[in-house]
Design a binder for these strands. Structure first.
Lengths: 130, 130
DNA sequence: GCCACACTTCTACAGGCGTAGAAGTTAGAC
DNA sequence: GTCTAACTTCTACGCCTGTAGAAGTGTGGC
């Protein structure tokens, strides 16, 4: 039991911490503000507190000064893939293929990305086929 | 302004109606139950009522008997693609490529699906390249 | 040794979602 | 015409999420 699906704001905070950690609440708050999400200091702390309870982050003792620092306990890949899996199940009834088809329709992938994908696809095909 | 992202239960109900509509609350309830989501009759109605307010479904007058019937006002593609777009933005910072790569990792696509995708990919490539 | 300030803890609240009971209404049976 | 069973309307409530103020605490400056 681990790695519950984070809420919207939890994910934002995790993203900050995945890029750099540990960070203090104030540092996290500042980064969020730079990204267009301005919150009161206490709001950030409340969230962090809840995330500690949910085991999404851990609270580290201050090295110097008085501010706690926080580190993620869940991994980038782990979380996003979990969320992706949930999403595929909930919205596309578990069909990864349907998702990709839909993405082709909507997303504007450039030539480079497309050939990248083809390369990968070929590799996968070789793996699957004997 | 339309097509808000439906909540989990709203989506379940929409899925039922996309397959067949119009349906009465009782019919919807039954279908949901078959899919493992058993709700009180009034719960279904409450939801439907809220969805009418949100313009996700419309209420049709009874043809015979006394039960209202409901039809979706939003389309399958429209909603799922909207949700997919949101998801890609929120979780993968807008990178459709990252989503597909992640799907390759997680989803067990079989050979047929893979070659289907490759076919599509090639078509896309031809479209993009001069 | 004391003070100011930064930081934390505690508490609260509003809105959305899922859920459903109680009370009211109406259609059809007879 | 009346009754009953089905259906709807009204109301409510608990949980979760996002948000933040007020009050408490401890550190470093001097």
């Amino acid at each position: 039991m681990a790695a519950e699906t984070p809420t919207e704001l939890e994910l934002l905070i995790l993203k900050v911490l995945w890029e750099q950690s540990p960070l203090t609440a104030a540092e996290i708050r500042e980064t969020l503000a730079q990204r267009g999400r301005s919150l009161a200091h206490t709001s950030v702390i409340t969230m962090l507190q809840r995330m500690v309870v949910k085991r999404q982050v851990e609270q580290l003792d201050p090295v110097e000064g008085k501010a706690f620092r926080f580190s993620p306990l869940v991994g980038d890949k782990q979380v996003t893939q979990g969320m992706l899996g949930d999403f595929v199940d909930r919205v596309f009834d578990g069909s990864a293929e349907a998702v990709i088809l839909s993405l082709f329709d909507v997303a504007e992938l450039n030539a480079e990305e497309l050939s990248n994908l083809r390369k990968l696809l070929n590799k996968k095909l070789r793996e699957v086929k004997p």
